[in-house]
Design a protein around this nucleic acid. Structure first.
Length: 289
DNA sequence: CTGGGGACGGGGCCC
DNA sequence: GGGGCCCCGTCCCCA
């Protein structure tokens, strides 16, 4: 069966590249209270108290830690066991433990305060379509002033960081719907890699040195060069024929098959190739609109 | 009209 | 991230 073409696997089903968070691995982990991912947050020394318009949240200002959480696959959580020290630092409940005052422990380790993003935090798309942690809220992106915080995207003011964080979920939802558009033909792709691959079909960087014809990919050029050399590496196991293109061999193998895969819905006639069926239907057998 | 070959395009996966 | 390769598919041409 076809490996990939008929059953498309959407990029959203892949395991996100959380490895990009490795730069903060020493202090990263997941919140044992909410299961969220912990990332450092450079909070200002003094955080504005919640204002009447900002509903209190459980992750608000727990011993100087603002705790929100990022969705992590269960497997990811299981595969990256937490450092007990990190747990004590990031867990709001552990933070209340009397053994080591949190601020002292932070000072001792010279670590920045921690931000745990909320489990309701939506998937975040980076420029390559994968979830990119650089989209996370950072202190330098959320300038603090005595009046509160300001969204770096729309400059909307917020009294508390948590209020700003909730607001930024909206931006993340918008980013999640983002797509990458080809500048040559306006085709849209969900990932930068797919777009780059598509752009090659416009730039055609692979040039045949024999006839000058250009191709989007090297292996397409290789197949084309065989038309010059006459090389036919794909031999039919049923007859003496050989082909330069594997797809053409596959189509040829259909001629040896007793069963023809493509059947006309009108007359039940079968064909070895979809193109033959299409041509048959277009010829008038199937009066479809 | 049909069967089949030749050439090629493009998305996706693996390394 | 890029190359190689996979696959399905299309278009054209000829017998």
């Amino acid at each position: 069966m076809p490996r990939s073409f008929l059953v498309k696997t959407h990029s959203s089903h892949r395991v996100p590249n959380y490895g990009e968070l490795e730069t903060q691995r020493e202090i990263n982990g997941s919140c044992s209270a909410c299961g969220g991912l912990v990332v450092p947050l450079l909070l200002p020394d003094s955080v504005a108290p919640p204002m009447p318009g900002d509903p209190a949240q459980p992750w608000d200002h727990i011993s100087g830690i603002t705790c929100i959480s990022l969705p992590l696959p269960e497997a990811q959580r299981a595969s990256e066991p937490l450092d007990p020290l990190d747990v004590s630092l990031m867990d709001p409940h552990a933070a209340r433990a009397p053994s080591i005052p949190l601020k002292d422990s932070l000072n001792h380790l010279n670590l920045p305060p921690l931000l745990v993003l909320p489990t309701r935090w939506p998937p975040i798309l980076g420029t390559d379509g994968d979830r990119a942690p650089d989209r996370l809220l950072r202190a330098e992106q959320a300038p603090y002033s005595p009046g509160g915080f300001q969204c770096p995207h729309c400059h909307k003011p917020y009294h508390t960081l948590s209020g700003l964080a909730r607001h930024q979920q909206l931006h993340c939802h918008l980013q999640a719907q983002r797509c990458f558009t080809c500048k040559y033909c306006d085709k849209e792709y969900s990932s930068l890699g797919a777009l780059k691959m598509h752009i090659r079909t416009h730039t055609l960087p692979c040039i045949c040195t024999i006839c000058g014809k250009a191709f989007s990919r090297p292996w397409l050029l290789q197949g084309h060069i065989r038309t010059h050399t006459g090389e036919k590496p794909y031999a039919c196991s049923h007859c003496s024929r050989a082909f330069a293109d594997r797809s053409n061999l596959r189509a040829h193998l259909q001629t040896h098959s007793d069963t023809k895969r493509y059947q006309c819905k009108s007359c039940a006639k079968t064909f070895s190739r979809m193109s033959l069926l299409s041509r048959h239907e277009e010829s008038g057998c199937c009066p479809c609109p």
